[in-house]
């Protein structure tokens, strides 16, 4: 094989590796507002929102109830915690309010 081919191939592999690495490394910051206190959490867009919720609750010391019992809201609209951050279209610096579910009406 020619030297030119080797160089191009090497360059291509390097670029692919960088892109692959970037895809996995890219994280966004989500601001969770819990009982009026803001907690910043770094999250992978490919992970479910629930994992970021769990992290925020642990960091803020709100560990009295399991993460599944908390509701997540963006500007008053509920979010599905099982969906990934990317699927929910959440961008860097988004503000999400967490409130304990009220299990009401009985």
């Amino acid at each position: 094989m020619s030297k030119e081919y080797d160089e191009r191939h090497e360059h291509h592999e390097h670029h692919e590796h960088k892109e692959h690495h970037k895809h996995h490394e890219h994280k966004i910051t989500i601001i969770f507002r819990i009982n009026g206190e803001d907690v910043r959490v770094e999250a992978n867009p490919n992970s479910p929102l629930l994992s970021a919720i769990s992290k925020a609750l642990a960091e803020s010391g709100n560990t009295g109830r399991p993460p599944e019992e908390w509701g997540a809201y963006k500007q008053g609209s509920p979010l599905d915690p099982k969906a990934t951050i990317e699927e929910l279209g959440l961008s860097d610096g988004v503000l999400i309010e967490l409130t304990l579910k009220v299990a009401a009406g009985g």
Partner: peptide
């Protein structure tokens, strides 16, 4: 007592506004 550590008046108002 099962919830008091995780609830505040701000959270309460959020729930009232939602409902």
């Amino acid at each position: 007592m099962l919830y008091r550590g995780n609830m505040s008046v701000f959270g309460l108002l959020s729930n009232i506004l939602d409902a």
